[in-house]
Design a protein around this nucleic acid. Structure first.
Lengths: 118, 118
DNA sequence: ACCATGTTTCGACATTACCGGAAATACGGA
DNA sequence: TCCGTATTTCCGGTAATGTCGAAACATGGT
């Protein structure tokens, strides 16, 4: 018996919720901001630590969470680990929000997103 | 002695983090989707409950969280409470994400947000 | 093999979050 | 005032999360 599609389709809403949750604390949102500001080069853990003043073990947990939700990408450079913001994930998330607010339901006018921001 | 601006400026990052956190669980993200799909009319609590099949007390907690982060607006209609998605809050949040990803750091091309979405 | 540096894991704690049944409250109508 | 419906508050249990020092691990160089 073939299971209904509901079983096979990964729950996108749950996935996006997890992404939002990963950006749902100030330290992690700051990390993402920092990585975006250093895009596409990214930063090594020590740089992030110095910039945000987070203890190494705490920082490692936050980075792990961001990694698990696919929001950052990692590559090794000798003894360093370089983290970069995942453009794909952020684009997906931004696209989801945009679709829900602007495309599907037209609750927000696209022009409203481009606000003056100092 | 004048305190540095860092003291007076409310921490916007923390605020946005709280908003992301509020949308960071599947039940609450579904509630926001539902309210957006019913925008601008909104829905009364009972409708949301029937639609999402969440016990009343649990639902009330989620709605309270969304209210506290300013993501929904409420008005009373007799014995009913009508919830609507807060366009202002969502626009602010979307604007923040857009600015961080597209404007400030140009990590994502704006055209990439408008993806085909079924 | 050893060392220095960078990063993660371990272990523990406090805090907060999620969930839901039962009771309490709010409102409008009879 | 009493009743029925709508919604919240109260209370408890359980699980998840944020934090961080200390120890372990990884890597490249000597």
């Amino acid at each position: 018996m073939v299971p209904s599609t509901a079983y096979r389709v990964p729950d996108l809403v749950a996935r996006y919720a997890d992404m939002f949750s990963a950006m749902g604390t100030a330290p992690r949102l700051r990390i993402m901001q920092l990585l975006l500001s250093a895009h596409p080069t990214g930063l090594v853990v020590g740089d992030i630590q110095n910039e945000l003043d987070i203890p190494n073990s705490t920082l490692s947990h936050h980075l792990d969470k961001l990694k698990n939700e696919g929001l950052v990408q990692i590559r090794r450079e000798g003894t360093f680990l370089r983290y970069t913001a995942s453009v794909d994930a952020l684009q997906e998330l931004l696209g989801f929000l945009y679709a829900e607010c602007c495309t599907r339901n037209k609750a927000i006018k696209p022009s409203g997103i481009l606000q003056i921001r100092k």
